Computed example of a mutant assay.
Amino acid sequence: MTQLSLICTVKNEAANIADLLDSMLAQSRQPDEIVVNDCGSTDATAAIVQSYIDRGAPIRLVHGGFNISSGRNNAILHAHGQFIASTDAGLALDRKWLERIVAPLEADQADLVAGFYQAAPRSDLETAIGATNYPLAEEVDPSRFLAAGQSVAFRKLVWETVGGYPEWLDHCEDLVFDQAATAAGFRSTAVLDAVVHFQPRSSFRALFRQYFFYARGDGVANLWPLRHVIRYVTYLCLVLLLRNLSQRPWLGALLGLGLAGYTRKPYRRLWHATKGWSFARRIKTLSLPPMIRVVGDVAKMVGYPIGWLVRLRKSTRLIR
Rank of each mutant, 00 (worst) to 15 (best):
T234W: 02
L112G: 07
D54P: 05
A18W: 00
A153Y: 03
Y262L: 13
L251W: 01
L169N: 12
T189R: 01
L286V: 04
K284P: 06
I283R: 12
I230C: 03
Y304M: 02
L207W: 03
V220Q: 14
A299I: 10
A26Y: 01
G56L: 04
G258W: 00
A114P: 14
A137G: 08
S202K: 06
N67K: 00
N16Q: 06
Q210V: 00
D43F: 04
V35I: 15
D124V: 06
L318I: 11
S315F: 04
A119Y: 02
R72Q: 10
R216W: 10
T161E: 04
G115I: 12
V113T: 08
L175Q: 13
Q118C: 12
V152E: 01
R248A: 07
R209N: 08
R187D: 12
F154Y: 13
C8S: 15
R29K: 14
A221G: 05
Y232G: 01
R320Y: 05
P166D: 10
V302A: 14
F66W: 09
L241Q: 03
G219M: 02
V195W: 03
R144L: 14
L318R: 15
A46V: 05
R72A: 13
D174E: 10
D174M: 06
G163I: 09
G163E: 10
V191K: 02
L309V: 15
